[in-house]
Amino acid sequence: MPELTDILFYAFAGLTLLCGFLCVANPFSRNPVTSAMFLVLTIISMAGLYVLLHAFFLAAIQVLVYAGAVMVLFLFVIMLLDIREEERRKLNGAAVGVGAIAVGTLAGILTRALWHAEPLAKVATSEGATRPLGKILFTQYLLPFEVLSILLLVAMVGVILLSRKELK
């Protein structure tokens, strides 16, 4: 009889893939709100996968930040701009090319990371608890962490600059 965690893993993994697919290529509806809601489901089922890895902090943050804040803003914008149903456009050759390259690169990086990953035993020890995670972030990975925060700050300043009504 398979373990409960295995069943849950396949359920969440399947749900993630299914909702991800329905988000980008829903054959039944071209409604942007539906796509956004499927993206929310994708994010939540990914949080479920994190829980199965004992990364509770990551799972909670995933739901809180992406499902709870970012996607709500997405919905806000979709509704405020009153985006109607997307028509089926013809495929743009350049876009397909760039998309294929991006997906290929990402897949390559992920495969390489998985290939070189250390055995699972080591992952289980960190348990994804908040305290060790914080310690690691502020000692071993301090530089990347701070660089990321500066990147976010730059993006924020950029948004404020762009959204000002009158540009001098």
Partner: peptide, 9 residues
């Protein structure tokens, strides 16, 4: 907080 933030949907 994660769950509360979903309430808005």
């Amino acid at each position: 907080f994660g769950i509360v933030s979903l309430g808005v949907y």
